[in-house]
């Protein structure tokens, strides 16, 4: 990936994460890692976002919220599951209220490992998501410029 064709905007939702991954997602935006210099913005509105970053596992209460945010995003969209909880349920896997990873509710394109996931890993995940996004553009009959 030698260039970024577009500025990818991402929307972040904390499913039932312990905050560890969430503050690392925020840490990616701040001066040490500073992904904003590549045009990556963390925004609140799902309708503006290309990439959906989910941390934490799925439970009964937030299932519909995740689905709702995903449905509001315009195509093409990519889902990045950040951290052990979002990929499989992680340390909370056996808890009675945890149903498992985010892929139980919505299709996930990129899985980022780690507990908590390191900012480097999250950035790598987002960069891989851009590749998937480009692929999805092509499949829709459009080419990113």
């Amino acid at each position: 990936m030698s260039y970024l064709p577009k500025s990818p905007w991402l929307v972040h939702y904390d499913a039932s994460s312990c905050n560890g991954c969430d503050i690392e997602v925020l840490a990616c935006l701040t001066p040490l890692y500073d992904v904003e210099r590549f045009g990556v913005l963390n925004i609140g509105n799902p309708k503006h976002a290309d990439i959906f970053v989910v941390t934490g596992s799925v439970n009964e209460q937030n299932k519909s919220v995740i689905k709702n945010i995903y449905d509001q995003m315009a195509d093409p969209k990519v889902v990045v599951a950040v951290g052990a909880c979002a990929t499989s349920g992680g340390v909370f896997r056996e808890c009675y209220n945890v149903q498992g990873g985010v892929d139980k509710v919505i299709p996930v394109d990129v899985y980022v490992p780690g507990c908590a996931a390191r900012p480097e890993a999250i950035i790598d995940g987002v960069v891989q998501a851009l590749g998937v996004l480009e692929e999805k553009y092509k499949n829709m009959g459009k080419v990113a410029k």
Binding site: D14, S16, N59, V65, V91, F92, C95, Y96, N97
Partner: peptide, 21 residues
Amino acid sequence: GFVHRGLEKLVEKRDFHEMVY
């Protein structure tokens, strides 16, 4: 209830050393 995991209940499955994590 959006972040409820029920981790207090895990004390029945993890011994008291593992529970720290």
